[in-house]
Design a protein around this nucleic acid. Sequence first.
DNA 1: TTTTTGCTACGAAACTTTTCGTAATAAATG
DNA 2: CATTTATTACGAAAAGTTTCGTAGCAAAAA
Lengths: 123, 123
Amino acid sequence: MKPTESELEILQVLWAKGPSTVRQVNEQLSQGREVGYTTTLKLMQIMHEKGLLSRTEEGRYHIYQALIGEEETQQHLLDRFVDTAFRGSAMKLVMQALGTSKATPQELAELQRLIHNLNPENN
Amino acid sequence: MKPTESELEILQVLWAKGPSTVRQVNEQLSQGREVGYTTTLKLMQIMHEKGLLSRTEEGRYHIYQALIGEEETQQHLLDRFVDTAFRGSAMKLVMQALGTSKATPQELAELQRLIHNLNPENN
DNA sequence: TTTTTGCTACGAAACTTTTCGTAATAAATG
DNA sequence: CATTTATTACGAAAAGTTTCGTAGCAAAAA
């Protein structure tokens, strides 16, 4: 439930592409950096042992699938991150994240609505 | 410039309390979890070697001080975190962070202003 | 059938991070 | 002065993470 950085990379691929073989995942990862096939294989095997991935045999292949959800995992990592990097202040994190983000007007408007609804004075 | 998790804990103490001895830092850390004095000492020595901390001898003590700024480091960690955990989407991170934060109406109002100013249509 | 190809299994090495035991030293105490 | 106490220095062990070489095996190709 607390994936390492490499494990997270693999989860990202599986979340984006859905159930995949080791080769498919490895090819995605190879786009960004050099990484051996057996390295990816080993990691995915370990993740399977840990219960992070499920595995079904499809003929000669193994198809892997993420067993933990993207949002759920992100929330968990985010909570941790706010604690360790921002001493628990989510507001500080939000402000800094907004400061450097290139958000579209649409996204900003959406945020405004969200914040409006969060404020109990408006309900 | 890329502190580990333990190093970050130490930085947090130094940012919050200012220049401190190993003992002072260790006592702070011990509030949260059990950690040996020599463990903290070793880490701070390593951080000094890496250039993360400065050290001045004050009589028999060594006074350590953070050499990297809090905001600067947070920004750096945040950028990394957005990439690895949120595939680069700062907006997604902000939304999720807001969802679970217990922000005060004052903070929310402040955010509204910030967002308002970010929107180029309003300038 | 023989050879080649592609996938999985396994184990170990390399590297990073964290923890701690021991010793040396200097200050404070008796 | 002798003893206790508090600090730093050093090195190595422990633990966690990442990488990869080699072997075995089954399917596909020749």
